[in-house]
Design a protein around this nucleic acid. Structure first.
Lengths: 234, 234
DNA sequence: CAGTGGTCTAGACCACATG
DNA sequence: ATGTGGTCTAGACCACTGT
């Protein structure tokens, strides 16, 4: 029997199981039939059932334990997954027209706080870029970014007046590790000015540090406009 | 050949591949050998290699396309995964001693903003609970929660003086859907008081709405203490 | 067209946790 | 002690897509 005829595939099984959970047929805490029985019900091998249930467990819907069996999770320990879209995509998804503007671009020795944060040598060269992302003419995000010159020598000749530093980096250097942090900060004078907020206003802020095999590439701080919410459903 | 002797398992393969990526042996954009060749290298079946590579692709390290092969992702489109731990666990993970305190518990008709948010009938009954979570004697989180009585009738007799409403809910009602939102808000008088902040201070805030099969169960707003950061690495 | 990953089968042994 | 999920094998056919 091949898999593209009327046979049940692991995706069909996932769909069916999910439907039973959402419809309430399998309430939270319900113990599912074991893999062998489900294999009979779906007329496929246990391997296929196993894959379906394993993925549903990965996604946080089921809990599986040897001997105890598989049950519907009542209080999903599910991880929240936030897609971190590119600013442009996010603006357009909200129905706006994306516009980029460079604020300043300057070649400087890394300040002490940055050296400490990224484990740089004192006074290592860095490119400091500040820029704005708009939705139409409404400020959407103010970006304050440092790029480590030793890790990205090409940045000395880069021009960020048309292409944003994030897009430029993605095209130029790969990276292997990312640390992403969310916090609430207070708008300082420049952020407040660019985002058109009173100074001291709460601002949702994301910090992103990127490495290429243990070499720090960039540190970016992104200040979002008033009212920004980061939402996920699961 | 069985899988627990010295044979390579899919986890070994994942580890090895990840090591090669992180060490730079397989730079971003590198094309990996095909599954058959890797199966020979690791002396296992293609099925096993497939599982390892498939999972690494799910986790955002690789990109796989038929005919084109498998390559190392240069700019991972990876989703950020935030584990949302229970407050108690989070406090203890940071080395603190967790302490809970009830602030107020009151049986009220749902206010208009809540009815709108959860699609309730006007004036539907709700339980309003406010409480504090401490790390030692330091405020950690202020929680402001509404529980929909029609969805959770038992809440009429619940007593939140010792057990927090979140723990109580987890033990009492299952839920199937969650919406989680992060934002930066301004500390109002009561949040500021409980968190020991100046009024108007930026506060990292999480909102959580929970449903059981389309019936809204609870709305919770959690205000974190000053300096709170939510971090993930990937 | 041909090469790559995607999936399924049928069977096996094993690890683990519960009763 | 035993039932459940966890994993592997060996082989097969298929789906997609780049050349």
């Amino acid at each position: 029997m091949t898999q593209n005829t009327e046979t049940t595939s692991y995706k069909d099984i996932k769909r069916t199981v999910l439907r039973r959970i959402r419809s309430g047929e399998w309430q939270p805490d319900t113990l599912l039939p074991n893999e062998q029985d489900l294999a009979v019900e779906f007329s496929c091998t246990r391997t296929t059932v196993n894959r379906a249930l394993r993925e549903l467990a990965d996604e946080g819907f089921l809990e599986r334990r040897r001997k105890a069996g598989t049950r519907v999770l009542s209080a999903p320990h599910r991880q929240a997954r936030f897609t971190i879209p590119l600013v442009r995509d996010e603006v357009e998804a909200l129905g706006g027209t994306y516009r980029y503007a460079l604020v300043s671009q300057q070649f400087l020795p890394a300040p002490e706080w940055l050296s400490a944060r990224l484990a740089l040598q004192t006074g290592q060269a860095a490119m400091h870029v500040r820029c704005m992302h708009y939705s139409g003419n409404t400020p959407f995000q103010f970006e304050d970014r440092w790029i480590v010159v030793d890790s990205v020598p090409q940045v000395k000749d880069a021009d960020f007046s048309a292409l944003g530093p994030n897009d430029w980096l993605v095209q130029t250097v790969p990276f292997t590790n990312v640390e992403l942090t969310f916090l609430a900060s207070r708008a300082d004078a420049s952020a407040a000015g660019f985002l058109d907020l009173p100074e001291g206003e709460p601002v949702f802020t994301a910090e992103r540090i990127t490495w290429l095999q243990d070499k720090p590439v960039t540190f970016a701080k992104m200040y979002f406009a008033a009212g920004y919410r980061m939402t996920t459903q699961f």
